[in-house]
């Protein structure tokens, strides 16, 4: 049973989560295949903050390898978890994970199309080299989400089986197209590997990529926080939400666009990291109930915490080699999904 937290005390949940996140980020900075003392880490950060021209030997490892990755893990974790919570509100079902219902596949398809098609049409160079992949990925995500929503809505209600089956179909098509592209059409260099698109990786994230991701994710996350009240009303059904004064068509589009943009940008740069959007909201709901005004900000932080832990493990468990992060998130997320599926069995009758 969730705890009932009075509205005034909710702020403390956020403070506690933020504290855990910051502590973990600090810990993650000190964890890695290379042994670096806390003194050296402090020195690197001090040098960077004072724009000192003298830099100690481990500066690149902290500043160019670990820190961008940690910031990216926080951003991507928060983005995926909030996107998951938004979609679960929209679909009125806790199973609506961006990876499971096909949004990630849609984005990956968009990204692959962007990588292959645009250059073949002569559209390369300049800002396009940097922007084409994320833009195509986001477009793919938004398109697929609208499609899934239309296909799984039967008579004003969300048909859960249709939603999951549409996801299976989109994932299958996406997997096939990406497989075809990776093995037959483009060079491996351009397209990354098949495992990148299916399992994801934060390996080798550079500051400019973190910057571009933040440009989309930070406004998306902030806008999401404003959607708590209307999404609460949405859980009663679209008509009920309208009766409660929610501008349903507008909110619906806003939720689809924001969540799909956030998933799209993360897929473009970090591939298909699964289950964060399922696990983070579920933990928060189990602990504090389904109120989106609490759920959305708490999800942002718990998602960041989860992905930060997963990525720190990914880069250290098999050190000096690297583990695919999707393997870790799936090991935690898969059983979660099964558990939710069992709880939702009644609704799944086709």
């Amino acid at each position: 049973m969730p705890l009932r937290i009075p509205e005034k005390r909710r702020i403390w949940i956020h403070v506690a989560l933020l504290f855990i996140l910051l502590m973990l980020a600090w810990a993650a900075l000190g964890i890695g295949p290379t042994k670096i003392s806390w003194g050296e880490i402090g020195q690197v950060l001090l040098d960077r903050m004072t724009f000192s021209s003298e830099k100690i030997a481990v500066d690149p490892i902290i500043w160019q390898l670990r820190l961008p990755r940690i910031v990216m893990a926080i951003l991507v974790g928060a983005g995926l978890a909030v996107a998951g919570a938004l979609m679960q509100g929209l679909f009125r079902n806790p199973l609506a994970d961006p990876g499971l219902i096909g949004v990630s596949s849609g984005s990956a398809m968009g990204a692959v199309v962007g990588i292959i098609i645009l250059p073949s049409m002569g559209l390369t160079g300049g800002w396009l080299t940097f922007a084409a992949t994320p833009i195509c990925a986001m477009a793919g995500g938004v398109g697929i989400t609208f499609l899934i929503y239309q296909l799984s809505r039967v008579g004003g209600r969300i048909h859960v089986a249709s939603m999951l089956l549409t996801g299976i179909a989109v994932n299958a098509i996406g997997g096939a197209l990406i497989g075809l592209a990776v093995t037959k059409i483009a060079t491996a260099e351009q397209l990354q590997s098949l495992t990148f698109w299916s399992l994801g990786s934060l390996n080798g994230i550079l500051w400019p990529v973190v910057g571009i991701t933040a440009i989309i994710l930070v406004p998306g996350l902030i806008a999401s926080m404003w959607l708590g009240r209307p999404l609460n009303a949405f859980l009663f059904g679209e008509l009920e939400a309208y009766h409660l004064g929610v501008d349903v068509p507008f909110i619906k589009r806003l939720v689809i666009v924001i969540s799909a943009l956030m998933v799209g940008i993360t897929v473009a740069f970090t591939g298909g990291i699964g289950f964060i959007g399922l696990v983070a909201p579920h933990i928060i709901r189990l602990s504090f109930g389904p109120d989106h005004r609490l759920l959305l900000p708490a999800c942002a932080m718990s998602g960041a915490i989860l992905l930060l832990i997963a990525d720190t493990a990914a880069r250290t468990i098999a050190a000096p080699a690297e583990l695919q992060i999707g393997i870790l998130t799936a090991i935690i997320g898969g059983p979660f999904f099964l558990m939710l599926l069992l709880k939702n069995r009644k609704e799944l009758s086709i």
Binding site: R157, G237, D247, G289
Partner: peptide, 27 residues
Amino acid sequence: FAAEALARRRSVLPQTSQLGFNFTVRE
């Protein structure tokens, strides 16, 4: 009327509700 302005003045009790999330009664 905008949806919100209308909602301040009329309320609808539906025949059935599809709420599937575990809110408390007060919420």
